[in-house]
Design a protein around this nucleic acid. Structure first.
Lengths: 326, 326
DNA sequence: TTGTAGGCGTTATCAG
DNA sequence: CTGATAACGCCTACAA
């Protein structure tokens, strides 16, 4: 691999001059610039990123710290982040935290050591104190309690949208499968559900069951729910994974969906489209969110001002077979 | 962040000595080692990876170059790779090539520039010439035509397994949805299909339809297939994505699965378990393959000898509802 | 407008 | 056993 010195030699100038034309700063005679450019092309010279990083403390790489890329919500996100990163000449380092704070801390440390320029974090527990350096961070899918910019969707109103949709297609008693207590998204969606049902005379806490955003847990949870409240004819699952689990359990137990029980999820992951019946859901613009978050992160990195601290995107109701009108 | 010089100063030794204890090479007095160790701990010193990389030409990071993380086959793979990488202190850079040779080349160039220690490639077109440096590479899911170590499964015998299973449950005429012509896996599976049906009196090329491993394409392809050969009562899809597409199209067109038409896929992605009916498939040990490939890559990087060039793993028939006995 | 030289943080080679 | 010191490849004052 050619170094800056090789180029300098071939162009018969000093390395400083080469550096100047590479970085487009400082004055340099047009003629010599041409010569340098030719040499660069001739040698197919690319500056060494490590050497550059070593004294600029920047590496043109971003970190993506998420619970588990295997969760169907994240591939789209990762794809969006990588696309934007790539567009701006950045590479992306992938880290699976399994939602374990120790792992998160471990990765953060490594990323900092590698002079990663910025990190996009998907975590319910992450906070500013976890950073040792003042490295730019954007959190995803969570309301930033602190001064960390965040990208998420309007979870609460989205949940209301879902529940009201169930009412509109004729449901009378609506149950809710909620996510984990430590996830702000789960909480917001729960609140949205409450918003929509609290004035109902029948409502009580018995209509809610926790299933931690997990498909398997949802299978048993939904049956418990129905055992306790056989009058339920519509279910709002706090995420699609739980909706799919619920669907499987319901069908297995002999319920018809949507005839006996209508079902709606939240997220808009591809999975909801491939099951039968297809599951209605509140679609998050996952790819767009990833794009936005990455752009935001890049802004931060380039020291450009960021307009807002919290970006709450709109969601969309997607009606499919699982909530066909009764 | 503390540097090696700070440590040296605090321990009252030279940087060389600190370097020696850090890397455990060269002689160093036990007493001074202790002193250095204490200083290291006291300052919470971690060597700067960039500086180290700059003169060792190693960065403790791996590249994963795949078509699209959004394809449900890959998250599991990525997870496995990242897990192993992480276990050995390596980071993982994710690259989506969309199967486009130019993008692949572009990424390879970047990865080389960043002194990535090795790359795991999932591509049908990649070859040794695409490398400028002699950087270790392992290819995934493809038979290495050249001297690049490869990890894949026994596609051909797996395909035979699938087709014979269809025969066993009572199918008489079996069609095949095959993957793209430029993918060796698609080819192998096609051959396995041929192996199993070529002695059948009814067999002709009309029983095969190409759908490029794509779910959407499979929807139309399967209908074309059945229009041409209404006698088909069993279908072997070259991958699960096509199987899911086929399933949807079949159900939509009023066929019953498996009563009218039995269906089996190949890969073992989670999706096959979430559709109704659940789809039988030939399970690849995706995670294990990722693990193995990464270990192999690490071996190469550490200059340790690699036992074989091609690792062909076993697959397993997983019977589910879509091939229930007739 | 251009070149020289010091520094970024480590490792490795040689003397001592 | 230990310490200088020259790389590694680039950027950036500071001089010229």
């Amino acid at each position: 691999m050619a170094t800056i010195r090789d180029v300098a030699q071939l162009a018969e100038v000093s390395v400083a001059t080469v550096s100047r034309v590479m970085n487009n700063n400082g004055y340099v005679n047009n003629e010599t610039r041409e010569r340098v450019l030719r040499a660069i092309k001739e040698l197919d010279y690319h500056p060494n990123v490590l050497a550059r990083g070593l004294n600029k403390k920047r590496t043109k790489t971003l970190g993506l710290l998420l619970p588990d890329i295997t969760n169907p919500f994240f591939p789209q996100l990762a794809r969006a982040v990588e696309d934007v990163a790539q567009e701006f000449g950045y590479s992306l380092v992938l880290c699976n935290s399994d939602d374990q704070p120790e792992k998160e801390l471990h990765y953060i440390k490594i990323l900092e050591q590698k002079y990663i320029d910025g990190v996009l974090v998907v975590s319910s527990s992450f906070s500013r104190e976890d950073l040792h350096e003042r490295i730019p961070v954007v959190v995803f899918d969570r309301i930033g309690a602190e001064d960390i910019p965040a990208v998420c969707v309007k979870n609460r109103s989205g949940a209301r949208l879902a529940v009201n949709h169930l009412f509109e297609i004729g449901c009378k008693r609506i149950g809710h499968l909620r996510g984990p207590f430590d996830a702000s998204t789960a909480d917001e969606r729960y609140r949205g559900y409450i918003d929509a049902v609290q004035t109902q005379p029948w409502f009580s806490d018995n209509y809610v069951e926790v299933a931690n955003f997990d498909m398997e847990l949802a299978k048993t949870a939904v049956l418990r729910l129905l055992q306790r409240q056989p009058d339920i004819d519509g279910i709002f699952a706090g995420n699609d994974l739980m909706a799919v689990g619920a669907l499987k359990a319901l069908l297995h137990a002999g319920y018809r969906v949507p005839e006996d029980i209508a079902l709606i999820g939240f997220d808009g992951i591809p999975l909801t489209e491939t099951v039968v019946p297809e599951i209605s859901t509140i679609v998050q613009p996952i790819y767009e969110m990833g794009e936005l978050a990455t752009r935001l992160l890049l802004q931060l990195i380039e020291q450009k001002p960021v307009l807002e601290q919290i970006y709450e995107l709109d969601v969309q109701l997607l009606q499919r077979t699982s909530t066909r009108k009764k």
